[in-house]
Design a protein around this nucleic acid. Structure first.
Lengths: 151, 151
DNA sequence: TTCGTTGCAAAGCTTTTGCACGAAT
DNA sequence: ATTCGTGCAAAAGCTTTGCAACGAA
């Protein structure tokens, strides 16, 4: 059995909420799901502007809809930009980020995640979500740090 | 034996780097260390402007120096503002944040922290730092959510 | 006196908003 | 035909920077 494509799911969401299904919205969704993860608005804009005239406002607005529809998640990767990652069929994961080249590795620690829920409960909080980021130097950047000092 | 005051430590740092020890820098440091944690630049500005005319630029610049000197840490608490917290004599901790009233609880999970180091190593990364944030509703906000619906 | 430092205003950056034109139903 | 969506430009909001006046050594 085939899984529904993200674009199809988004179309269903839009209809269910009384929003219009438009070409731009579908193109943004397709681009977001067909390319490197953790894209920023600028990334999407750079990829889409070849195909059509598109404004960043529209990208921001469409991404908001995708977030509300539960298809993507807005994440903070420690830089100045909002990043977006697919939620569909993804297991919950955290991010390991290279502070030199921005390379990102996804990892999961399911047993530890349980502790996060317990911690919230322990302080009487109702857990909503959590975010774990580990920053460091990736293997490549460690090598180049030796031969060629970072400015 | 008494511990050196933050202001004194900062003065030492400034001298060691050839920077001037100024009244403004000392006042900012004193205010930052004598009041609620996780302050923003605007918080500091509001507290200091009663005593003297001070610009946000200076606060930003002084905070940068305090970060470089290792006396404070710049942290992201999920809102639009940069927050700063003392490093001195603090044990490493993470943050539990109420998404409604922004209340913050600090907690530590030392055994789990070890796993973060291992995770970095496992992927060949050289660990530099990590950040864990748990978002949820604090006890008070859970109560008021029942009686009085959030808009 | 000599430089580093400060306050002010302007600029920078990402993101949001107002509005008239254009597209979807 | 009506309502919603889009592009453009301007505005917002936090942070940074240029510069002349000021203060520390």
């Amino acid at each position: 059995m085939e899984r529904e494509s993200p674009v199809r799911l988004f179309q269903n969401y839009l209809k269910s909420q009384g929003f219009n299904v438009t070409k731009v919205r579908c193109q943004i969704t397709e681009t977001l799901f067909s390319a490197p993860e953790h894209m920023t608005v600028a990334d999407l804009w750079a990829r889409l502007r070849n195909e059509r005239n598109i404004s960043m406002s529209t990208i921001y607005r469409t991404l908001d809809l995708l977030v509300e529809g539960g298809l993507i998640r807005k994440i903070d990767l420690g830089d100045a930009f909002a990043h977006y990652e697919p939620v569909l069929g993804q297991t919950r994961h955290e991010h390991l980020i290279c502070t030199r080249c921005s390379k990102i590795v996804e990892f999961a620690l399911p047993d530890i995640e349980e502790r996060f829920f317990e911690t919230a409960e322990h302080y009487g909080f109702l857990h909503q979500r959590h975010e774990l980021k580990i920053f460091g130097l990736c293997p490549d950047c460690q090598k180049s740090s030796i031969s060629q000092e970072v400015p």
